[in-house]
Design a protein around this nucleic acid. Structure first.
Lengths: 200, 200
DNA sequence: GTCTATAGTTGGATAGAC
DNA sequence: GTCTATCCAACTATAGAC
C-alpha cells in the first residue's frame, strides 16, 4: 500500500516470514504465504530480497539475535538461593509459551545442513546457544558465589546439549513435568560442579 | 520392468524412498525421485501406496523396527568392565557412519508435528527409543551385576534425551571427540546410579 | 501389473504497467 | 516503489492404453 523505506520494509517482511514459519512450519513458508501475511504484493518480496533463501537467513538471524536470553534477564534480580531454579523456570516458561518457534529453530538447522544456500545457519545457532549458555553459567557462578571446577566451555556444551534434548522430547510428548524435572536435574548436576569462590 | 508381487514391490519402494530421503533430505524426497531411484514408473508408486504420506510412514516404520539396536548386539559379548564403554562406542560408530539417517529421523519427527497425515510418527520414534534405552540399561545392569537405584524409565528418558542432544550437536559441528566425551559422560553418570546387586 | 500421458496445483521468479 | 500479470518448472495424482 504505502511507500516505505526499504530497511523498514525488510523488517516488516522478516517479521511476517517469522510469523508464517512459526505457525505453518518451514516447508509451508512460501513466498506467497509471506506476502499474504505481510499484506503486500508478491513482487515486493523479490524487490526486497534476491531470493527465498535470503529471507530465511534473515529470519534465522532475527531469531538468534532476539534470543538475547530471557533466562539471563531472569537471572538479574534473584536471591542466590533461588537463582538456579528461577533461570530454569524462566527457560521452561519461554519454551512452553512458544513451542512452535523452538521447533522452527530445529527445522532451520536441519534445512541448513542440507541446503548450501542456508549453510552456516545451524552453526550460527550453535554458536549463539553456547555463548548464551556461558553467559548464564557466568551469571549463576557470580550470583551464587562459586567457581567452576570444569572449564566453562565444557559445561556450556553440556547445558545446551541437555536442554536441546529435553526440549526436543517435550516437543513430541508435551510432558511439562518431565521437562521441568530434566532441566532441574541438569541444573543440579552442573551446580554440583562448582566450588565456593575464594573471598576476594 | 518385471512383474512383482505387491508386498515385495512395496519393500523395494520403501528401500528406495529411504535411500533418497537419507541422501537428499525429506523435502526433496518427491514421488518422482523415489520412482527414479527404484527405476520404476511414477504410476507404480501410486499403485502401491495411496499417497506420499503412506510411503513416508512406511519409511519411518522401517527405520524404527530396523533400529533394533546395534548397541544391544554390542552388549551381548563383552566382559563386564568393557560393557558400558563398548555400548557407547557402538552407538557413536553407528551415528558417525550414517549421520544422514539420524538427521532424517529428526526431519521425520519435525514433519510429523506439523502434518496431520504424519501424526503419531514422532511419538512412535520416542516410544521406540525409550524401549531401546530400557533394553540397553537392563542388559548393562545384568552384565555388570547391579540394580538401578532410580526407576529405569527415568534413566531411559535421560539416556535418550542426552543422546539426542549430543547427536544433534554433532550433526552440526561434527566434533567426534565432543560426541564421544558427552556420551561417555552420560554413561558414567548413569552407571553411578547403580548399586551392586544382592547375590541371588 | 505396468506404463505413458496428462490433468490440475502450487511455487519461485520476472517483466512491465503505473 | 508498488502492483498485476505471467512464465516456467516441479510436484501429486489419476486416467487409460497395453
Amino acid at each position: 500500500m504505502t511507500r516505505l523505506p526499504i530497511d523498514q520494509r525488510r523488517r516488516q517482511l522478516v517479521r511476517a516470514a517469522l510469523v508464517v514459519a512459526t505457525r505453518e512450519g518451514l516447508d509451508r513458508t512460501t513466498m506467497r504465504a509471506i506476502a499474504a501475511e505481510a499484506d503486500v504484493a508478491l513482487g515486493v518480496l523479490h524487490y526486497c530480497f534476491t531470493d527465498k533463501a535470503e529471507i530465511l537467513r534473515a529470519v534465522a538471524e532475527h531469531i538468534h539475535t532476539a534470543g538475547l536470553d530471557v533466562a539471563l534477564a531472569a537471572a538479574g534480580h534473584q536471591p542466590p538461593d533461588r537463582l538456579v531454579a528461577s533461570v530454569v523456570e524462566a527457560y521452561v516458561a519461554m519454551v512452553v509459551v512458544a513451542p512452535r518457534q523452538y521447533q522452527l529453530e530445529l527445522e532451520l538447522a536441519m534445512a541448513s545442513l542440507r541446503d548450501p544456500e542456508l549453510a552456516g545457519l545451524a552453526a550460527d545457532r550453535q554458536t549463539t546457544k553456547l555463548a548464551n549458555a556461558r553467559s548464564v553459567l557466568d551469571a549463576v557462578a557470580d550470583g551464587v558465589g562459586l567457581v567452576w571446577t570444569v572449564p566453562v566451555d565444557v559445561l556450556a556444551r553440556r547445558l545446551t546439549l541437555e536442554t536441546d534434548g529435553a526440549v526436543l522430547a517435550w516437543l513430541i510428548d508435551r510432558d511439562d513435568e518431565a521437562l521441568a524435572t530434566a532441566l532441574h536435574d541438569t541444573a543440579g548436576r552442573l551446580r554440583a560442579l562448582g566450588r565456593p569462590a575464594p573471598r576476594p
